[in-house]
Write a protein that binds this DNA or RNA. Structure first.
Length: 421
DNA sequence: TCTGGGGTCCTAGGACCC
DNA sequence: TCTGGGGTCCTAGGACCC
């Protein structure tokens, strides 16, 4: 059996932990650049807000109901995520953290010693007690069914945080009541296809024959069908090594000069290189893209991207940034008002690196040590304390808007909360 | 005025190889 | 009229996820 432990409205719940006056009140957390709503509490849903709403379009509701609005603070959410996962790991040996707010716990072997429902309810209670984050748990023979269980646990308080789908009768009932497009693995396109084939509920899909499913779907659809029938076939074993690393941002203000574009791209290249070193890998290719503001129909639109392949895979910030700057020289077009840029690195490899005889870079090892030293200093003294000059100042007009950001209560000693009793 | 960011896997088709 | 068989690798695009 698998248990899925899913935090409720995770980002919003984290903010509520540190702002206890918001209990029972509507809370929303915005995307980067204070753009759209990415997380919201049930109280916010009840007054008509939705995930994905641009915040400026719902300003009236926000003002009328005095909604608490927060800018995104990934450092804070990541630190809390680690704590929640740590509590689960104290009770279950094999835990895959699937996303920032979800963990799959492998319960095989536990059923002979424990009542799984009670056991996981204990875990959920401890998470609530120790972190104040509410979670919902689904227990089932497959991950797809466990996901469905966690949604029921979230929706109906009667489950007291845990819903087990552990026999065929419960499975059929759950599948008959669940929304087809809420099933894990069924997105918009697959949903439309199923509807056009006359399938309206997860149960109707699960009850189709294997031949029928193979005729209409490829591997992903077949997997979902098997999982809905209780046959596990989805592996989520943690991927320790990223295959691609991207850093991109929309700008707080549109920019035009090549110096500003370069400053943004250099900042993102340094961030990619930092993440790359963090997982102990090297990259074989770097890609840069620039684009204008596609919501502004009145302005000239532009998108362009370029790539550079390294002769020898590298994790050197200087080398990656240098390549990125050359790409900007090639794809930058004057007269455009740019809204977003980004850097992607790929062809990521770990371990031994094949050298070439005529390596254009001298003293590779020393330069890499320099990059690691940058990481150490910036870890200790704060982001961008030591950086390349081309990255520009700490406050640049293109920096993201982040007007409602709370402190890094769990990771920065200067932001520790003071409690008055 | 203001509209996010970062991933994975799968498949088909082209290019190329012997 | 008839023109092989069997591979690999790479890339772009689709679909999905949080």
């Amino acid at each position: 059996m698998w248990a899925l432990v899913d935090a409720n409205s995770f980002f919003a719940s984290v903010e509520k932990v540190f702002h206890p006056g918001l209990r029972g009140k509507p809370v929303v957390v915005l995307s980067s650049n204070d753009g759209i709503i990415v997380a919201l509490t049930p109280e916010s849903k009840a007054i008509g807000l939705h995930r994905g709403d641009p915040i400026f379009k719902v300003k009236d509701i926000v003002n009328r109901y005095n909604v608490a609005v927060f800018s995104t603070n990934m450092m804070l959410y990541a630190a809390m995520s680690k704590r929640v996962a740590g509590i689960i790991r104290q009770s279950v040996d094999r835990v895959d953290q699937y996303s920032v707010d979800e963990c799959f716990a492998d319960l095989s072997g536990y059923e002979s010693h424990y009542n799984l429902e009670e056991y996981m309810r204990g875990v959920a209670d401890r998470i609530k007690l120790w972190t104040d984050i509410p979670v919902s748990v689904g227990i089932a023979p497959t991950k797809t069914l466990a996901k469905i269980g966690s949604k029921f646990a979230k929706k109906y308080p009667g489950y007291r945080s845990v819903c087990a789908i552990d026999n065929d009768q419960k499975r059929r009932k759950a599948l008959s009541l669940f929304e087809l497009d809420d099933v894990w693995g069924i997105g918009r396109r697959t949903y439309e296809k199923l509807m056009s084939l006359g399938v309206h509920t997860p149960l109707e899909f699960a009850d189709k024959s294997g031949d029928w499913v193979a005729r209409h779907f490829h591997k992903p659809g077949v997997q979902t069908w098997k999982e809905l029938n209780g046959f596990p076939c989805i592996d989520t074993t943690e991927i320790l090594q990223r295959q691609n690393i991207t850093t991109s941002r929309s700008f707080g203000e549109m920019i035009t000069t090549i110096e500003q574009v370069k400053a943004s791209v250099a900042t993102f290249a340094a961030s990619c290189a930092n993440k790359l070193r963090g997982q102990g890998s090297s990259a074989g290719v770097v890609t840069v893209f620039l684009c204008s503001n596609f919501f502004r129909k009145d302005l000239e639109q532009y998108f362009n991207a370029g790539s550079y392949k390294f002769e020898v895979p590298t994790a050197d910030t200087l080398e990656i940034t240098d390549a990125a700057m050359h790409i900007v020289d090639e794809i930058y077009k004057p007269g455009i008002r740019y809204k977003k840029s980004g850097v992607m690195i790929g062809d990521i490899t770990s371990g031994c690196i094949q050298n070439v005889l005529f390596d254009p870079i001298d003293k590779r090892e020393e330069r890499l040590r320099l990059s690691f030293q940058l990481d150490r200093l910036n870890q200790k003294y704060g982001l961008k304390t030591v950086r390349l000059a081309v990255e520009g100042e700490k406050s640049e007009p293109w920096k993201v808007k982040s007007e409602h950001k709370s402190g890094n209560y769990l990771t920065d000693i200067n932001d520790l909360l003071t409690i008055h009793i």
